[in-house]
Design a protein around this nucleic acid. Structure first.
Length: 334
RNA sequence: GUUCGAUAGAGGUCCCAU
């Protein structure tokens, strides 16, 4: 992002004015590094200058305010945008809708939805999927399916994201088999699942004690030449560990490297946790050290996981060593 | 006409919630 801004400086110095796309891209960059304040500042600066922010620039900042749960601020900016005579798009509405859902304001979300239905930004598949996701997160899966009927009635077809969201809702409410049925149904209708669909299902199956079914699906993916990613592996490794199949988990973990997929800190956490739970503290510790040598940086959560293992094993000196180390690195023990 | 800047779905220790 720094480089992007220095390039912008260069552009301006040689007499090139950035356009709206350039500035929106920079705003998105600021947001992606978590610098919301700068993003808002840049927007304000543009408002005062020649290159006025457009709909996309506003929506980008509104989105990032929402993502940071600053929904009130997002609506303030939205009003400001309307005041400048910029008409919101469906994306702006969907963004605000998600923000409202995320901070648990369903009544406000419904109100906004009504406004969309009455205006010229009719709800689209993203709108419905956003609400369906919110309902599923609140475990209101029946209501989520009702909304599917409603969207169909309005001529909006659910897509893979919608279905994956519903599968997640079914899994979360303890019905991974129903999720699997829905999966089969959409597949037989010609829908190609993606990795998020698979990982949602695999996690749900593992979570509810159906490692066998998960492994069947996992094999099916390989038979169908699906390109696996590290998330898929992590889910299966975790499922194996939780089912007491540590040997299989270890083997699958090793196969990651063979397949040129690099475990990330979550994969290591799952594997280390599995080792700790079987009392293999030495192996867990070795893996923890190897992780960093292999270029994967630890975070606070993996420290907590391994420390917990040593606490259960009453290895006071290791606990002290690791707690000191994590604090020194700016993480806090939970 | 198309593409290039904005919106929805997946994985980790413990705690909390249920």
């Amino acid at each position: 992002v720094d480089f992007a801004f220095s390039t912008l400086g260069k552009m301006i110095r040689i007499g090139l004015q950035p356009d709206a796309v350039t500035v929106s891209t920079l705003i998105k960059g600021l947001c992606s590094i978590g610098n919301n304040g700068m993003a808002v500042q840049l927007l304000k600066k543009m408002e005062a200058g020649d290159c006025k922010p457009d709909l996309v620039a506003y929506t980008t900042v509104i989105n990032n305010l929402c993502k940071n749960r600053l929904v009130t601020e997002a609506f303030d900016l939205f009003s400001e945008m309307l005041g400048k005579g910029i008409r919101p798009s469906i994306v702006t509405y969907n963004t605000l809708l998600r923000g409202l859902c995320q901070v648990g304001k369903p009544e406000a979300a419904v109100q906004l939805l009504k406004k969309m239905e009455e205006g010229d930004c009719k709800p689209d598949v993203v709108t419905y999927s956003t609400i369906i996701n919110s309902l599923c997160k609140d475990r209101l899966v029946t209501e989520a399916f009702d909304l599917v009927s409603e969207m169909l009635g309005k001529g909006v077809r659910p897509n893979l994201v919608t279905y994956t969201t519903l599968m997640g809702g079914l899994c979360q409410t303890g019905r991974p088999k129903a999720a699997l049925e829905l999966f089969r149904e959409i597949c037989s209708g010609g829908q190609l699942p993606d990795l998020i669909t698979y990982s949602t299902l695999l996690d749900g199956l593992c979570e509810h004690g159906h490692l066998d079914e998960a492994l069947t699906l996992f094999k099916e993916m390989q038979d169908n030449d699906v390109n696996l990613n590290v998330v898929i592996y992590t889910i299966i490794i975790d499922g194996m560990c939780n089912a007491g199949k540590l040997h299989d988990a270890r083997e699958l973990f090793s196969s990651l490297f063979v397949n040129k997929l690099w475990p990330d800190v979550r994969t290591y956490t799952v594997m280390i946790n599995g080792l700790c739970n079987e009392g293999l503290l030495h192996e867990a510790y070795e893996l923890f050290r190897k992780m960093e040598r292999d270029g994967c940086l630890p975070d606070g959560r993996i420290y907590n996981a391994i420390i917990r293992g040593f606490i259960r094993n009453e290895d006071r000196s290791r606990v002290m060593e690791l707690v000191d180390e994590m604090v020194e690195r700016g993480f806090h023990a939970d």
